[in-house]
Amino acid sequence: MKEIRIHGRGGQGSVTAAELLAAGAFDDGMFSQAFPAFGVERRGAPVQAFTRISDSLIRLRSQVYKPDYVIVQDPTLLEVVSVESGVKDNGIIIINSDFEPEKFDLNTNAKIMTVNATKIALDIIGRPIVNTVLLGAFAGATGEIRSESIKAAVKARFPGKMGDKNAEAMQKAYDMMVEAKI
């Protein structure tokens, strides 16, 4: 089983991202589970959402404490939230940032990868909506889900032109991550 924790701020679509990831993974033939860290949601406040992906039925209902992967939607969260908390040594932390991964001094053995999802979103979607872009980056960085599956999940949720643009931005982030791995 692989566990993913998504950090964002209220309004950034972290919960939606977790759900889309679960839908995409199921489309890939896996079992999945997505849920928010139930809090008193306020726009701008730090929020978390979780996804589990497994090749067998998922029964566990606790929150995620030792994620394999972490997605950080907003780099300013690093000042207020310990995003590296519990991440497995062989895990990956994907941060939305225009800085190089080396700039981030986190207390972890996990690999840090960065992608400027905000720029990609502004360039392609025209709005700074980064959650879907980061899902593309996740697929590219981890190989846990096919880019076609996660794009299909996004397009199913946002039909039409909006979905197409999101998919395009996701593919770009996916390609950048695949390249960064090499």
Partner: peptide
Amino acid sequence: MDGFILSHVHEP
């Protein structure tokens, strides 16, 4: 059903 844990979870 357990609030949030089941009401808000997305699963197959």
